[in-house]
Amino acid sequence: MSAAVRRFSPFFIGLAASHFLVTPLFAGATVDLAAEAARPAVNDQVRATVYSEVQGKYPAEIARQVNREIEDALKLIRSRPEVSVKSGNQSTYPIYGDKQKIETWRMRSELILESRDLAAVSRLLGELQQGKLALAQVVQMPSAETRRKAEDAATRDAIAAFQSRAEVIAGALGKSWKIKQLNVSQQGGHMPMPIMRASKMMLAAEAAPAPLEAGESQLTTQVSGQIELSD
């Protein structure tokens, strides 16, 4: 049974370029199709990674220093209820010198901050860098709710485009059609902000609450599959 052509959303981006293949035209012939659509989604959530990293001769000493810096940072972060925190990667490894002998050790411990309050995260990052921690990465993205709404809208647009292309092909061949197979996938939604590496002294001297602009991410839904033609 032929499906009705849906009206396109104003946010519809377009079809994948001429992607269709028709098998020999007899009863049960199939056509491969692909279509895609995109919707913007506000980056209303931010995730930042901060870390303490210390190098020294004795592993126990650097571990105590790193743990102390992390504990101090956690006290500050937990005083901001609008920002959540969890532990990130932790590592300790040797630094080799001449003749492959261990000269010193380096330890690194990360904390991951998340919030929908971009201004609060910006201020907190400035304070943490004024202390002992350094900033590794900031990623802005749509929150789960915002992302779901944009993906749902893009999926409806992409399916409508798929149906429209199927209607055009079947109509040109004087056939009716039905969907035999359909695949749906989504892409996009993360915007990492590059962070220049610097010494702790430089970070402490220059750190200040940098404004974080929300911006938008483009979320794309791709639909591919097969339709079956019949008389």
Score class of each variant (00 low, 15 high):
38 A>L: 09
204 A>E: 15
198 A>P: 00
220 T>N: 07
149 K>R: 13
229 L>F: 02
9 S>A: 13
128 L>D: 02
28 G>A: 11
112 I>E: 14
40 P>M: 07
11 F>V: 04
83 V>W: 05
202 M>P: 00
196 M>W: 08
147 R>A: 15
21 L>G: 07
3 A>S: 13
210 A>P: 00
181 Q>F: 12
45 Q>M: 12
218 Q>F: 06
39 R>S: 08
35 A>M: 05
33 L>C: 03
18 S>Y: 04
65 Q>K: 15
205 A>G: 06
115 S>Y: 10
152 D>Y: 02
109 S>H: 06
196 M>H: 10
110 E>G: 03
170 A>W: 05
195 I>S: 02
128 L>T: 01
115 S>Q: 13
34 A>W: 11
110 E>M: 02
20 F>G: 01
142 P>S: 05
6 R>Q: 15
200 K>G: 12
219 L>P: 00
34 A>I: 06
148 R>G: 06
213 E>L: 13
79 S>M: 10
206 E>D: 12
202 M>V: 15
124 L>S: 07
125 L>A: 11
149 K>G: 09
190 H>E: 12
225 G>T: 00
224 S>H: 09
161 A>D: 13
165 R>K: 10
113 L>P: 04
107 M>S: 10
212 L>T: 04
82 E>G: 08
99 K>W: 11
40 P>G: 01
52 S>I: 03
216 E>H: 12
94 P>C: 11
